[in-house]
Amino acid sequence: MKQNFTVRQGALDGVEVFLSVAQHRSFRRAAAELGVTPSAVSQAVRVLEARIGAALFIRTTRSVGLTEAGERYLSHAKPAFDELVAASQVARGLGQRPAGLLRLSVPRAVVPILLEPLVASFCQAYPEVEVEIATSKELVDLAAEGFDAGIRFGQFVDADMVAVPLTPPLRLIVVGSPAYFAERSRPSHTDDLRQHACLRWRRSSGALALWSFDDNGRAIEIAVSGPFIAHDFPTMLGAAVEGMGLAQLPAPMVAEGLKAGSLVQVLESFAPVIPGVFLYYPSRRQMMPKLRAFIDHVKSRSIDQGKTPGT
């Protein structure tokens, strides 16, 4: 059976009034400082005294003084109230300008693709913001884990998140090393993958990811087999470079290897297009200036350079 609970009222009611009266030793001057009537100040003090259970002031027609209880209350209440005011100012500052700690949950694969070219310039542009990147293949609960935002490939972002595209859509490319192809023929069709060692990726759910292809406009998925299973794209990329087998990876990840000749692309005509990389967060209403600054910085860099960051 549900019980009716209410938030206890008045835990701090009257404290600011008490401190003002104690400072000025006058109800009238305290009222002027607070912008209320002297009777309102007197009523607030009476309520505070009743809640505490002790008289805090000695009142005469000529002066106002503190009782022993009032002196002790003042010695504890003033520093505590000053701390509360300072805390409010700090919080207000973080809500008004880019400052504080910006925590991002990011898969390891995205760091060299997107973040490395941007974090240094962002930190230089916003010296009051500290950036913390926590790499994880898990889709973490941003609010529960204390993250401001996450960065993931678009297909892994939940529909209830606000998503900001950081790159255009990407192609998934099948690659292998020259050493691997030295002893094997290159596949010309997805059916040929049955004869090849394919490096696989285990999702955070525990399932092995299927390989996706575009067969003349028809999306298909294939369960491949091979000697090696990785839990992230960078590990799978390293295995491909070492000649352990074929890997299917986002195009930006393999661009350097293709250019250097350490990787060779195959099945080009079957390469599918997937959603790009997105920054996501729970609500626009909760966006702090530090996160807005980061989003704007990424967008401006992309526009200024005329290309997607990191590609």
Results as ranks from 00 to 15, higher is better:
Q3I: 11
E16W: 02
A22Y: 00
R28E: 02
V45H: 04
V47Q: 07
E49S: 12
R51A: 11
G53E: 00
T61H: 15
S75Y: 03
H76K: 10
H76W: 03
P79H: 08
P79A: 12
S88A: 15
V90D: 03
R92H: 10
Q96T: 15
L102K: 07
L104D: 05
S105L: 01
P107H: 06
R108S: 13
A109R: 09
V119H: 05
A120Q: 07
C123G: 13
Y126A: 06
V129M: 12
E130L: 11
A134D: 06
A134M: 05
T135V: 10
S136L: 03
E138C: 08
D141L: 03
A144P: 06
F147S: 09
A149G: 08
D160W: 03
V175Q: 03
A179V: 15
A182N: 05
S185R: 14
S185G: 10
P187V: 11
S188D: 07
C198N: 13
L199H: 03
R203I: 07
S205C: 12
A207M: 08
L210Y: 09
W211K: 09
W211N: 11
S212H: 15
D214Y: 10
D215P: 02
E221M: 06
P234Q: 11
A240Q: 01
V254Y: 00
E256A: 13
G257Y: 04
A260G: 08
L263D: 04
V266E: 01
V266Y: 01
A271K: 00
G276E: 00
G276Y: 03
S283A: 14
R285N: 07
M288T: 07
M288F: 05
K290C: 10
F294C: 04
F294I: 07
I295Y: 09
K299S: 15
S300N: 14
R301K: 08
G306I: 01
